[in-house]
Each structure stands twice: as structure tokens, then as C-alpha cells.
Amino acid sequence: MKSMISLRNVDKYFQQGPERFYVLRRVTLDIKPGEFVAVMGPSGAGKSTLLHVLGMHDTAWSGEYLFLDQPIHQLDRKKRLEIYKKYFGFVFQSYHLLDDLTVAENLDVPLSYRDIKKSERQAIVADILDRFRIVGKKDLFPSQLSGGQQQLVGVARAIVANPKIILADEPTGNLHSSQGAEIMEMFKQLNEEGATIVMVTHSETNAAYAHRIVRIVDGWIEQQ
């Protein structure tokens, strides 16, 4: 099967005086559609950086990045954003819900950036609230939710625009194990429904949900 994501010799470094401090070093990686990939490694190894490169939040790197055969490394910011909005969803370890918005409004935010009509957006949000069984919490603000509930909203927000690939940065890192398991079951279900998932994790238990584990140390990907 053809790769959905293909990285070739991706380098990322910070200049510190005369020295270059590499965060990613000659990273070459292929991810196929429908795969569930776990990225593991010690703290500071470059896992999150790799995820943000994949998610196009970070564009200060060198090398080649093909997404569905489109050369991301050659595209301008606008075109990258178009691709991102069409295909990607992102889950953060610290949930990063917008404090001033209610649950329903948080779920509406990604849709509002995709030029979807208000009435249509309301229907999608209602559907996702129902699917995640959080209808009763739609008017609450993030500060009124538990950590697990916040992450549930975070996952719901990541998939609300129906992405083809979900990038998750330690999605259970701040949760109790029971809440973590609930989130991981949700990822498993999404993957079974066809979503490609790339998840950064420290947890071997969570990694066990993945089809494949990519290990990264000091910016280098270990031989798979």
C-alpha cells in the first residue's frame, strides 16, 4: 500500500552560539493509511517535535515530507493550512481547550475555520456531543470539567471535522489509568473506523493499542 506520510532525511536543530543542537536527525519514516503508530522514547528525544512536524505546526526543518504524494516541504503556508484543515486532527496532552469557550463552542472552533455554515456546524456539534455522551456538559466551561472529561472533549474536538489522520501528543499523560483506558478505547474505535493515528506516548500499555511502535532517541529513529 502506498504511504500516506513519507518523511525523508528530516533534520531540525536549534542554533546555540556556534553549535547546532539537533532535535531531529535524518528522520525517515513512512506511515500508511489506516495505520495506528505509537512514537516512543525518553523525554527530550524529539517525539513531540516529530509530531508537530507531521502536523505542520512546525515548519522550521529541512528534508522532505510527502503527504499523499504532495511535497509539504515545498508548499507555502496557505497551501499547508488547506491540507491540514482537510486531513488532520490534533489531540494535546494538556487538552488545550479554550478557557473562554463552552464545551459546545470548543467543538465548534475547528468547524468555524473550515467555512461550514452555522446550521450545519450546529448539527455536527450536536452529533459529536451525542456520540461522546457529553450532551449534558455542552454549556460548561473547561474549568468546570475533570481532566478526563476535558481530554474527552479534546479528542471530540480533534475528530469533529472528520480528519483522515489524528495526531495525539501523550493524550493520556495527565489522566488516571481508568480515564486513560477510556481514551485509548476511543482511539482504537476511531482507528477501526478508518482513521490513521500517530500517537506519542511513554506508556507501553497505550503503545500496545498501536499496530507499530516507532522509537526515537536523541532525535534519531531507531531501526525498526
Binding site: 493550512l81 478557557d99 475547528p110
Partner: peptide, 11 residues
């Protein structure tokens, strides 16, 4: 917040 909005697709 701005970064999250950007990550959620805001130009």
C-alpha cells in the same frame, strides 16, 4: 490559545 487555534486550523 493562539497556538491551539492555529493547530485547529485557524489561518
Amino acid at each position: 490559545e493562539m497556538a491551539v487555534r492555529a493547530a485547529l486550523g485557524a489561518s
